Simulated scan of single mutants.
Amino acid sequence: MIFGIICVGYYFAICCYIRKWDSKFPRIWLALGVVSFLLGWRWERLPEVVTAGLEMAGLIVLLIFAAVELLILSGMKEDKCAGEAEYIIVLGAKVDGYHLTDALKQRLDKALLYLRTHDKTKVIVSGGQGPEEYVTEAQAMAEYLIRCGVEPSRILKEEKSTTTRENLIFSGRIMREDPDTECMARTGIVTNNFHIYRAVCIAKQVGYQNVIALAAPTAPIMFVNYMTREFFGVLKMWAERKKTKVD
């Protein structure tokens, strides 16, 4: 019951932070909270075989969850001594109408830090247009970088992708078509820290040979939410393992 109350409280905290009540994934905390509260309230009245089965299932799920989360945490770092990237790819995230969400702005601010200290690096902003987005994610990102002083000639836009895998496949094709490069170049992948493990794994699956991880921070209040969502993202990545390559 205590866990249920914590989950419901966390749901309301997230909604207050993002100033929205209809965001899809945070609803899992509301559902988990209600189910946990009801189970706690009725636990002593359930048959022993049911409670034993629930305890065993819960333990198995917890062990799998912990193992995946450790992998995600292990990737939550960046390669500080890997040399200069010829390109960095900023992976798209939701745009609220015309406005950048916090997660996307954090990625762009990380990219800005890198671009300001590596003046020969080009940036690919990658992301299509989804529901409730009035422009493509790539367009919103490009406009932000230009406002912050990045020369338009250094920015390449990839505006078709809707997933991390597509981000990387389509961006890789743009690099191959760029007349300034002849092959898959050293590439920095810019995303939030919780997303680094999956992004780098997918990059290697689709053919990237020389990847630099550039981890942007995450708002502390959203960290548990994003880490939990990423658990399902990693499971989906393992299930798909598509053979689609950049070529």
Rank of each mutant, 00 (worst) to 15 (best):
I169K: 05
Y197M: 13
Q129N: 10
I60G: 07
F37Q: 03
V95F: 01
K242I: 06
V95S: 11
D109R: 01
A219N: 12
I5A: 14
V135Q: 04
E133N: 06
V206Q: 10
I88N: 01
A52G: 12
I146V: 15
E133C: 12
L112G: 01
T187A: 03
G188W: 00
W21H: 06
P26D: 09
A140L: 03
A213I: 08
V8P: 10
A103V: 15
C15L: 06
I18C: 03
L108K: 01
R173E: 14
D79S: 10
N192C: 05
R229M: 14
T187P: 14
T136A: 06
I169M: 03
L71M: 15
M1T: 14
W21T: 15
I189H: 00
I64A: 11
K160H: 05
L112A: 06
H99Q: 13
Y197S: 01
L108I: 05
A203L: 11
E151M: 11
M184F: 00
Y87L: 08
P217Y: 00
A93H: 07
R186S: 10
P131K: 14
S126H: 10
M184H: 04
W29E: 08
T136F: 01
Y226F: 14
M141S: 09
I196W: 00
A52Q: 05
S74M: 05
F37G: 14
Y87E: 10
R154N: 08
A66S: 07
T244G: 05
A203K: 04
L145T: 11
L30K: 02
R19K: 14
I169Y: 01
T101P: 02
P220E: 01
L104F: 12
V125E: 09
D178Y: 07
L100Q: 02
G4Y: 08
K105H: 03
V123E: 06
H118W: 05
W43V: 11
L70S: 06
L30Y: 03
A31M: 13
S171I: 15
C201P: 04
V224L: 13
F65Q: 11
L156N: 00
Y87S: 04
E143K: 14
I202K: 02
R116H: 07
I18E: 13
C81A: 12
L214S: 03
G83K: 04
I189P: 11
T218G: 10
I202Q: 02
L113P: 00
V49I: 03
K242T: 15
G4M: 05
P26C: 08
P220H: 00
L63C: 10
M141H: 04
F170R: 05
A138M: 13
G233R: 12
E86N: 09
F231G: 13
D102S: 09
G128I: 12
I28Q: 04
F170L: 15
M141D: 02
V246Y: 01
G4A: 08
Y197I: 05
A216N: 03
R173L: 11
I202A: 01
R198N: 13
V246K: 02
I124V: 14
V211C: 10
R198P: 11
G233Y: 02
G40M: 09
Q129M: 12
A111H: 03
V95C: 12
I212E: 00
K77A: 07
E158C: 09
A185V: 15
N193S: 01
